[in-house]
Simulated assay, not measured.
Amino acid sequence: MRQAAEVGVPVRLTLHQLRMYPLEVQTDQVFVTENPAILRAACALGASAPAMVCTEGVPSAAAHRLLAGAISAALWWRNDFDWVGCASPRRP
């Protein structure tokens, strides 16, 4: 997982993976989006892309666990103005 992050390759994380191998979020900003197209666009930046989490709609338990570990990071949350986007929480 770390090697992928170092070169800017997105990784799908499951709750099981996060339980087995807890990740420590070591950045001061995390950008969160519910739209995979935003993540794809950010991938063009490669390793210079900011830390980003894509929830693909409603945040999963894995997303909540990962973001809960971002204690000192500012979360910049972007949602669509639709039912799913409006219902997404701002901070897990």
Rank of each mutant, 00 (worst) to 15 (best):
R2L: 08
A4V: 02
E6A: 14
E6S: 13
V9R: 12
P10Q: 08
P10T: 05
P10G: 06
P10N: 07
L13Y: 14
L15Q: 04
L15F: 02
H16K: 15
Q17Y: 05
Q17W: 05
R19G: 04
R19V: 14
M20F: 05
M20Q: 15
Y21C: 11
Y21N: 14
Y21H: 15
P22Q: 12
E24Y: 05
E24G: 09
E24H: 12
V25C: 10
Q26L: 12
Q26H: 06
D28V: 08
D28S: 15
Q29P: 00
F31C: 05
F31N: 02
V32Q: 08
V32P: 05
T33K: 01
T33Q: 01
E34K: 00
N35T: 04
N35E: 07
N35C: 04
P36D: 02
P36W: 03
A37R: 03
L39Q: 08
L39D: 03
L39M: 15
R40G: 00
R40F: 04
R40C: 04
A41Q: 13
A41M: 10
A42M: 14
A44C: 08
A44V: 10
G46Y: 04
S48V: 10
S48N: 09
A49V: 03
A49Q: 06
A51K: 07
T55W: 02
T55F: 02
G57R: 02
G57L: 01
V58W: 01
V58K: 03
S60K: 09
R65M: 14
R65C: 10
R65A: 14
L66C: 13
L66P: 10
L67P: 02
A68Q: 11
G69R: 14
G69V: 09
G69S: 14
A70S: 11
I71K: 14
S72E: 14
A74Q: 14
A74G: 06
L75H: 09
W76T: 12
W76Y: 12
W77A: 08
R78P: 00
R78L: 10
D82T: 03
D82Q: 03
W83K: 10
V84M: 00
C86D: 05
A87M: 14
S88V: 09
S88H: 01
S88P: 00
R90V: 15
R90I: 15
